[in-house]
Design a protein around this nucleic acid. Structure first.
Length: 424
RNA sequence: GGACGGGUGGCUGAGUGGAUGAAGGCGCUCGACUGCUAAUCGAGUAGUCGCCGUAACGGCGGCUCACGGGUUCGAAUCCCGUCCCGUCCGCCA
């Protein structure tokens, strides 16, 4: 949720942000209008309510006929107070509903849609397989050769976009996630294994129930949602709390399964494990002071890049355009690894600065020097996912279908240097 | 799933219809005292919304005693529903 006071003071900034995202700028005026009506009705109610309370005290002291006379008057007043209270509540609800529809104000993100990202940099050069003299296999061909990925049985048991990781595939996923966890711990993050089912208010608070609500699995019978990332649970972790950030950001590394319906992506990435309904992820999550958020964002990006260095992948960093940010993010950087068999870049990490947007929705605040409270900033970023297997297999494959294990990952695979195909 | 008991401020814990946003204690902050610390004494110590106002500090009012509804002139207190916690029983791993 955006800051109502900021909206009052600088409505043009919010309008411009909405336009840059391709969202509706008229929501700003609807909110301002609702705010004015709310304040007017609130003042009317408060005045009457104060009068009612004052008379209540007189009633308590009065005796006999005097008391009866007072009671006759207060009875009427009570009805009036109730009516005004309803009006004020309705006006507040209207304002609230409008405010919740407005996306976070962008902060530095390029204008435009999905294709209007800005490439920040490239790191490491993709291999030239033609020069090496062989046609690269895609991750599924490699994964099947290694007996690491089993799509057919995934479909048999659970349906399309489900899979089994077996043998070295299972070990490889654990290696990635454990390496990510170790790096996070070394950087001072508190490791957390989170719930993957959350209540509606938690899901709503993180901003995932807006335009992309179709992406989320819902258990109707229990009124719970399956999270698409542990960000959801970690954002809710400190909901309705006043936290202490005097010693720096509160940083958590969440390990969880992630569930996505992929409702709008029929036909996209149907081969292999690039786009699936369930995977695992280690996610960084940081609560920090609003003025530190931009710097913290760069730090999260830095830790993501450290992980990509650990697995020795060529990648680029993009500054995502406004229209492709989630509703909560003010700015987002993605790291995309090269996918040689498709001649394209594949998102492996994504780090968002949600500024105070999520925290305001979830009621996460800090105490300031002068004793008041204010919303904190929240940020998140990926440290490792199941999808990384795709990039690792394809980029480190060898002509015979074996795969070189990047050195950084070897300690997590018992020193294994090469993954060998299984014959038969 | 059934039966009880309970949810009050940062914590603990009183309050069972009338000036109680809430006693007492703990903790914390400030001050006094003491070579220092401790102890002691004094003062202060929830959040939020609105109105007024300042250079700054502020003043007034509304709301909040798990959440939602109801009764009443008036609810932390009575009634109903929901959620959560505890104990016991049952059931299933």
């Amino acid at each position: 949720m955006i800051d109502l006071r900021a909206l009052r003071d600088n409505p043009d900034v919010v309008r411009a942000s909405q336009v840059a995202r391709g969202d509706d700028p008229a929501l700003v005026d609807a909110a301002l209008d609702a705010d004015a009506r709310r304040r007017a009705s609130l003042a009317a109610f408060e005045e009457l309510r104060a009068e009612q309370k004052a008379m209540g005290k007189q009633v308590a002291q009065a005796q006999g006929e005097e008391k009866q006379a007072l009671l006759a008057r207060t009875r009427h007043l009570a009805e009036e107070v109730k009516a005004r209270s309803r009006e004020a509540e309705e006006a507040a609800a209207t304002l609230d509903a409008t405010l919740w529809k407005i996306s976070n104000v962008i902060d530095g993100a390029p204008s435009g849609g999905e294709d209007d990202y800005v490439v920040v940099k490239h790191v490491r050069t993709p291999r030239d397989f033609a020069a090496e003299g062989f046609e690269p296999r895609d991750h599924l061909a490699l994964g099947e050769g290694l007996r690491a990925i089993d799509m057919a049985r995934g479909a048999k048991v659970s349906g399309a976009r489900f899979f089994f990781l077996t043998g070295i595939g299972a070990r490889l996923e654990l290696a990635i996630l454990n390496a990510a966890m170790d790096q996070a711990i070394a950087a001072g993050f508190t490791p957390v294994i989170t719930p993957t089912l959350v209540k509606p208010e938690t899901m709503r608070g993180t901003g995932f129930l807006g335009a992309h609500a179709d992406e989320i699995y819902r258990l109707e019978k229990d009124d719970l949602y399956l999270v698409g990332t542990s960000e959801v649970a970690l954002a809710g972790y400190h909901a309705d709390e006043i936290i202490d950030l005097a010693d720096g950001p509160a940083r958590y590394a969440g390990w969880s399964a992630c569930y996505r319906r992929e409702a709008g992506s029929a036909g996209r990435d149907t081969r292999g494990i690039i786009r699936v309904h369930q995977f695992h992820k280690v996610e960084m999550f940081s609560y920090c002071r609003p003025e530190d958020a931009a710097a913290e964002h760069q730090r999260l990006l830095g830790w993501e890049e450290n992980m990509l260095a650990l697995v020795d992948l060529p990648y680029r960093v993009i500054d995502t355009a406004a229209g492709d940010l989630g509703s909560s993010a003010a700015r987002k950087f993605d790291c995309e690894a090269w996918l040689p068999t498709q001649n394209r870049w594949l998102e492996l990490t994504s780090t968002s600065n949600c500024t105070t947007f999520q925290a305001r929705r979830l009621g996460v605040r800090e105490r300031t020097e002068d004793g008041s409270t204010r919303a904190v900033a929240t940020l998140n970023g990926t440290l490792g996912t199941t999808r990384w297997i795709v990039a690792i297999l394809e980029n480190h494959q060898q002509a015979d279908g074996s795969v070189r294990v990047p050195e950084g990952l070897r300690p997590y695979l018992g020193g294994l240097e090469v993954l060998e195909p299984v014959s038969g």
